[in-house]
Amino acid sequence: MKEITYLEAIKEALNEEMARDASVFILGEDVGVYGGAFRATEGLSNKYGEWRILDTPLSESGFTGAAIGAALVGMRPIVEMQFADFISCAFDQLVNVAAKNHYRWGAATPIVVRAPYGGNIHGGAFHSQCIEGFFFNVPGLKIVAPSTAYDAKGLLKAAIRDNDPVIYCEHKYLYRRIKDTVPEEDYVVPIGKARIALEGKDVSIITYGAMVHTALEAAQVLKENRVSCEIIDLRTILPLDKKAIFNTVKKTNKVVVLHEQTKTGSIGAEVSALINEYCFDYLDAPIIRVAAPDTPVPYSAQMEEAFIPQVKDVVSAVEKLMHY
């Protein structure tokens, strides 16, 4: 076992998969000699050459389409979006080509799109967005969003080995702030499986990404008030691990859904609807959603803090449920 950061976990997964499988290659803006805006591909160009760490023109739709075409003839491309926000330019290729290839005409499209997403970095409206919601309503895609270094590495490896298009949401805020231990040997974290980030019995907090850490902090505060929280880290957003969601509801009977994505039509809305549809009889109180408000991500630190759910917001939501 060794301790590495979330970003190092991503780097290691890329390097190890490229070494393992010659069909794996990376394409995107400034990923080559420069090593990527967040340095995730640093050093790989020297090791694998310019044709496997491919700097592309500034054209997200073009290089995403190219990844799809390469995948159709046996490659396993990894697309790096410089910022997840720019994935909107590739929306058509992902939604109409990659997502539908297998259903429409039986062609597997094993691509991974790395999407550095999320706020708390003072990036403003075009460098802070949560993009998972844009693609949540697109059958055929898979979406993962790790919250730990262990999962960042294991899920990226799983995504690369998967035969479907996977949008890999890597939270920029966690890159250098999160450290945990990963095994020396090869491992994958299966797509489609949530994990229990904290066991508890009174209230469930269902969340993913950077908000897992917010939830953990909130749980610490609540523990002092003798409230025991169970935290579910979804890890895979599409398709959702319904079993894990229902199990925790049946255990605690009270649910907070927490995410950084804006509230309307969100992942949390779907989680809440699923619980209503399949677990209504297990609920002792209405589900509370803690999410970003329905606005673009603001720039000023004061406003961004008001935008992103904070520990105090989670604590008050849980307390509200405890007093219901």
């Binding site: 044709w51 995948a71 159709l72 490659m75 290729q93």
Partner: peptide, 15 residues
């Protein structure tokens, strides 16, 4: 859409 997708297959052949 098949212009970049086609280019990607060509890229694979080149790699």
């Amino acid at each position: 859409d098949n212009y970049p997708v086609g280019a990607g297959a060509a890229l694979a052949f080149k790699i």
